[in-house]
Design a protein around this nucleic acid. Sequence first.
DNA 1: CTTTCTTATACTCAATATGAGCATTACTGC
DNA 2: GCAGTAATGCTCATATTGAGTATAAGAAAG
Lengths: 326, 326
Amino acid sequence: MQKPRGGVDFASLLSIRLCAAIIAASALEPRVLTLRFREESEALPSGPLEVEHRTLEKGLRAWVARQTGQKLGYVEQLYTFGDRDRVECGDAPSGRSLTVAYLALVREAEPDFAGEAVWQGWYRYFPWEDWRQGRPGALDRIEADLLGWAREAPGDAEARLRQERLGLAFALGSPSWNEEGVLERYELLYEAGLIPERQRDLEGAPFAEGGEGVGRPMAVDHRRILATAIGRLRGKIKYRPLIFELMPPAFTLLHLQRTVEALLGVRLHKQNFRRLVSEQGLVEETGGVSLDTGGRPARLVRFRREVLRERPAPGLHLRAGRRALA
Amino acid sequence: MQKPRGGVDFASLLSIRLCAAIIAASALEPRVLTLRFREESEALPSGPLEVEHRTLEKGLRAWVARQTGQKLGYVEQLYTFGDRDRVECGDAPSGRSLTVAYLALVREAEPDFAGEAVWQGWYRYFPWEDWRQGRPGALDRIEADLLGWAREAPGDAEARLRQERLGLAFALGSPSWNEEGVLERYELLYEAGLIPERQRDLEGAPFAEGGEGVGRPMAVDHRRILATAIGRLRGKIKYRPLIFELMPPAFTLLHLQRTVEALLGVRLHKQNFRRLVSEQGLVEETGGVSLDTGGRPARLVRFRREVLRERPAPGLHLRAGRRALA
DNA sequence: CTTTCTTATACTCAATATGAGCATTACTGC
DNA sequence: GCAGTAATGCTCATATTGAGTATAAGAAAG
């Protein structure tokens, strides 16, 4: 091991922030809990790590409770962001700051808690990620701009590299959109200068108007954090029963399917989805029925906890990039 | 957002460490790069984040180069550990310390670089994780001790909970060992007091002798970090072509299979493994053959980079917990 | 130069899993 | 009772797996 360097001057410039992407979901729309940030945009709940916080996760829970009143259920660490030239909240000290980002899942969307916290549909920030109604219109413009960016590359090799990355991330000329590549797509858009945060980070300019197709900007690098969270969640519901952290105690199979679809941003084949869920033993009947289906009444089911003991990776074994329309 | 707290006194107690689990692999054994630590055990390369480090990853690479001379290829962030009561290297300042841990893959095991760095087989630290020769003998003792720990639980509910966790993590009474659960198993062993680091952390006692079956201890919480790395790597080679970061430029299919088996700690079915690799288009022939197979000469192949463009998740689509013996 | 040992490589086959669809049932609102 | 809307049950072709069998091509031993 190395001797430590007596770096008090350095350490005093250092701060740790904890940041949470708190997700809830209805059958129609996945939501993220946000705070208003300077009129112009939203931020994720976050705050500095304090000495009282025994663990990072406890610190996070404390901050979220303080800022939004929300109690967190499932919490999982996402990533630690620490580039030196990361942009800070203007009011933070100018030294280096690390942010440890978390994904949290909660069951209910109590709207407008504490006046400050607001649930927002997450596709507001990522309009190109919602393929439930087919290919999002915003993608026409985005693809054109991205291809332009690829062509402008300095040098032929770089141009081809960019084109390749684009092709993969946005499934250009291929039928297989991979819904898990949320972060990769966001970073491409950011690099290509299509994301308003880019201009702000480079020039310190406030957000310009317009540019609806590229989604609403967020404070600091919070949109990147949200992208990380969405990608992680989309991947993980396939092999872990995380989805039930978002569902009410009892629900119908269609409700479950619609919620999954909302998260993945893709439609699924109904009968196969049911087969999957029941064959996997993920749910059991409660005995009740729901009459407000708009059609034949549906049986209510609940999550079957025993599945955790039975299978090594219980989840909806959907494969990324498959094409399963309703 | 919250106003920042003028916390210089706090900040000065804070330090960030970067830590790397650097993995290489031969057909026989996966290895991890270690440094000697106080006669009694080994440590992973690590060092404090410094102002000059533009990004966390660059800082990590710098430390690893300084301590071991090793150039890193593939690097991926694993997890950030930050519990307040984490034990520190004795020579570190007594304040709080966060460790950002990384997984790195390198191609060659140049042995004994710089006199200080040593490659060690990773099963030295996790003997219960190697099922290639069948169920490891060390598990008899471990399971007995773990079951004892479960029985000693205060209260019946807690006892059942412990038993359930055990059963899942160690596949008690089930044929399906899940090789990805490395961290979960390590943490259970730690909680149960079977891991020497536990005693050290609680009582500050140096490591006692013996206890071969529970693996060699490491400095600080480095064994936990290594467990995280192994679990991540075991999971990820299934859907990303990471394995090729560990292979030489040309290799035979059996060499590839043995390396995968070494990492997973499981034997695989030979013919099916080849079918998988070739059908996935993961490799292409180099034209050469290897004569030192001990049998019929084998064709040499190399990684087929184009696969990255063709499939969304190229990898060895092995499923966790399957039972495929040679 | 033939036998034996070892590994490579080519195929086969049954059991599942998956994608897509048809048919029937049971409610609500006219 | 009829139309609309879902729920639910079932079928079927096509992949994907797990597990073998069979044959080929070297080296080493005799």
